[in-house]
Design a protein around this nucleic acid. Structure first.
Lengths: 125, 125
DNA sequence: TTGACACATCCTAATATGCGGATATATTGA
DNA sequence: TCAATATATCCGCATATTAGGATGTGTCAA
């Protein structure tokens, strides 16, 4: 399919827009961060990231077991789109709730393991 | 649905992108012009125009029997998108063929009726 | 008010997309 | 090599989107 069409198709989904808005604020995030921020199962998050990757909107870098995703600013059109998102979409209804969930998660995140389910809230013993 | 998502959904379709690119070059076009340019049936063209209208990307104005469509530049985000399209999408594969078909049609277009099927090519007798 | 024309909407089948559990793959440390 | 963890992909199902013919609506002229 045409590159530009693919790009806009990728943007035309609320979940993926939420991912991009999170990456606008946080420069880079791993999949488990996004799981927490979006409150969605891992397979769903990963699938959306694949769509964004294929549209050249994000790029991933593996560091150890983690995949860190950031915005892909290599292309003029994607840079233009990010500007547009920053200016007109950061007010997206879900965006602030996502950021809040993300920050909560980052606070209690175990750096060794993603600590899903067994956050630090309970390991003070 | 969220306004911004709806906007990008509308952009994420090759036919609709082709319509917007035509309107970037021609300021305003009626449905039968677009039928000719896209080489698609009227109902299909009309449906896509409805999607673009609902996304605030185009606006229509009735003049007599005709509906003239043009880009809707009332909103910051749509203006930004049009700039983006102009800069990065006018090279879309189909775009030049569409413009060519449109120009051919406009040459032979009967101003009274849309002259579908009975173009001027055959009425020189 | 009737007919012709431009356009919009409805209807149904085909296709695409989204979801999330299950499973596969990759990396690391033991 | 094996187990544990993070991520990617597969699969089946549900829903959304698309196409285009048929039909409805609005406008104009006679």
């Amino acid at each position: 399919m045409n590159t530009q069409v693919q790009l806009f198709k990728a943007l035309g989904d609320e979940t993926r827009l939420r991912v991009l808005l999170l990456l606008l604020r946080h420069t880079e995030l791993c999949v488990c961060d996004l799981e927490a921020a979006l409150d969605m199962p891992q397979s769903t998050v990963s699938r959306h990231l694949a769509v964004l990757r294929n549209a050249n909107l994000v790029e991933g870098e593996r560091r150890g077991v983690w995949m860190y995703y950031r915005l892909n600013r290599k292309y003029g059109i994607s840079k233009a789109i990010f500007k547009c998102l920053k200016k007109y979409c950061l007010t997206l209804e879900q965006a602030s709730a996502d950021t809040h969930r993300l920050n909560e998660f980052l606070k209690t995140k175990n750096v060794e393991t993603c600590s899903k389910g067994t956050g630090k809230q309970e390991d003070s013993q």
